[in-house]
């Protein structure tokens, strides 16, 4: 699975587990409008750390939380490359 497909798959799984109605996922979707709250994103980050072995938010540099889903995926794709 690619980083992108892993992230999308986890979002769908968490939406079901947390009983959230989520918007149609596309790169320009603002995360604020996705149907996820901050706790869902915390769960997503926890799952992605397990799946991908990556946690871009705990790196030494201060990282702004991404605005769109595309930004979120790009953050993980960049972390996977480095």
């Amino acid at each position: 699975m690619t980083v992108r497909s892993t992230i999308l798959s986890e979002i769908y799984k968490i939406a079901v587990a947390q009983k959230r109605d989520i918007s149609t996922l596309h790169d320009d979707l603002p995360l604020m409008d996705s149907g996820f709250d901050s706790l869902c994103f915390a769960v997503l980050v926890a799952h992605l750390e397990d799946d991908l072995g990556l946690d871009p938010f705990s790196s030494a540099e201060e990282i702004e939380f991404p605005v769109t889903l595309g930004d979120f995926i790009a953050l993980y794709e960049n972390a996977a490359r480095t």
Partner: peptide, 9 residues
């Protein structure tokens, strides 16, 4: 450690 619990359900 909460992350482990979050991922573990």
């Amino acid at each position: 450690l909460l992350r482990s619990m979050m991922a573990g359900g």
